[in-house]
């Protein structure tokens, strides 16, 4: 019991540190002044916000989550390239004179088997950002309903994108 309490306290301290660093970096980027008075004010307000809200933004963060963040940094450029590639398909559709024969909106359902909330949220965001598909609902068991604009863009789901997201959050089982 004592040990569990201790672990909980440690996790709270780590998320406090992460929140403080995040807030302070945002302060520096947004203000752009480096006078001691303004930096001191930034430290004070970041400390206050980190004290009150450390269980809100990065709740239960541990040291292992740094690895998840690094893997996310590898995943983001791939996502951007994918978005740019898929956007040209949508541009072609939009400017096509006989667009109404080309598009075929329909709703598909599939099961992904992802567990954690953040993985499901990331996958839903990625599906919505990839043109041709919009997430309608995503429930806690990993079931998705997706509105796709034509048959071609619906083919690739869930497929590669699900594997990438599962790899980022370490859910490869």
């Amino acid at each position: 019991m004592q040990q569990k309490e201790n672990e909980k306290k440690q996790a709270g301290f780590f998320s406090f540190i992460i929140t403080f660093v995040f807030m302070f970096v945002t302060w520096i980027i947004l203000s752009g002044y480096f006078e001691p008075l303004l930096l001191g004010l930034g430290v004070v307000s970041s400390l206050a916000i980190a004290w009150f809200f450390h269980d809100l933004l990065f709740a239960g963060a541990t040291v292992q989550d740094v690895k998840v963040f690094l893997r996310f940094c590898q995943y983001a450029p791939w996502l951007i390239v994918e978005i740019i590639k898929a956007n040209f398909h949508l541009l072609f559709l939009v400017f096509h004179p006989r667009m109404h024969q080309l598009i075929d909106p329909h709703i598909i359902q599939f099961q992904t088997g992802l567990k954690s909330d953040i993985a499901i949220t990331t996958l839903a965001n990625a599906i919505t950002l990839t043109p041709g598909t919009v997430t309608i609902t995503a429930n806690a068991e990993g079931g998705f309903r997706v509105h796709a604009i034509d048959r071609q863009s619906a083919q690739g789901l869930p497929g590669v994108m699900r594997d990438r997201v599962a790899h980022v959050y370490g859910e490869n089982r």
Binding site: I83, I84, N87, L90, L91, V94, T128, L129, T130, P131, G132, V134, I149
Partner: peptide
Amino acid sequence: HPAGKLDTL
């Protein structure tokens, strides 16, 4: 579809 994503790009 065009509103949400082409604007982002």
